[in-house]
Simulated assay, not measured.
Amino acid sequence: MTANGIKILLKRLGAAAGVTDVHAHRWRHSFAHEWKRAGGDTGDLMLLLGWTSEDAPRHYGASAAAERAQETQARLGIGERV
């Protein structure tokens, strides 16, 4: 299957499921975000997704970085005990 064939298939499957704007990079964003939320290591993420530059996990994880930072602050509670 070609790259364009995968793109077409993802769009069809998304439409059939009632999900708009389905594309492979959306999966990468979601996967990177959930990986980091779960405490996953950036190096392991790079290895799993075939990335050789730290720019890739930074880019794909940036869409939800603020959410992860807020979750970490809530978990650590630094400043709550002052």
Rank of each mutant, 00 (worst) to 15 (best):
M1V: 08
M1I: 03
A3W: 04
N4Q: 09
N4T: 12
G5M: 03
K7N: 02
I8S: 05
I8M: 02
L10M: 08
K11T: 03
R12H: 02
R12Q: 00
R12K: 02
G14N: 00
G14W: 00
G14M: 00
G14A: 00
A15C: 01
A15K: 03
A16C: 00
A16M: 02
A17S: 03
A17K: 02
A17T: 00
G18I: 00
V19K: 06
V19I: 11
T20W: 00
T20P: 03
V22W: 00
H23R: 14
H25K: 05
H25R: 03
R26T: 07
R26K: 13
R26I: 09
W27A: 14
R28M: 14
R28H: 14
H29I: 04
H29G: 04
S30D: 11
S30H: 07
F31L: 10
F31G: 04
A32Q: 10
A32E: 09
A32S: 15
A32I: 05
H33A: 12
H33K: 08
E34L: 11
R37P: 03
A38V: 05
G39W: 08
G39K: 13
G39I: 10
G40R: 12
G40D: 11
G40S: 09
D41T: 05
D41P: 12
M46E: 05
L47N: 13
L49V: 13
G50T: 01
G50D: 00
W51I: 14
W51D: 06
T52Y: 05
T52R: 15
T52W: 07
S53V: 15
S53Y: 12
E54N: 08
E54K: 11
D55C: 07
D55H: 15
D55A: 15
D55Y: 08
D55W: 10
A56D: 07
A56R: 10
P57S: 07
P57E: 08
R58D: 04
R58A: 08
R58G: 05
R58Y: 11
H59Q: 15
Y60T: 13
Y60N: 11
G61K: 09
G61L: 13
A65F: 09
A66S: 08
E67Q: 14
E67K: 09
E67F: 08
R68A: 08
R68N: 04
E71W: 07
E71Q: 11
E71K: 08
E71P: 01
E71T: 02
E71D: 12
A74W: 06
R75A: 15
R75G: 14
R75Q: 15
L76S: 11
L76K: 15
L76A: 14
L76F: 12
L76V: 14
G77R: 07
G77F: 09
I78P: 03
G79S: 15
R81C: 09
V82N: 14
V82S: 13
V82P: 13
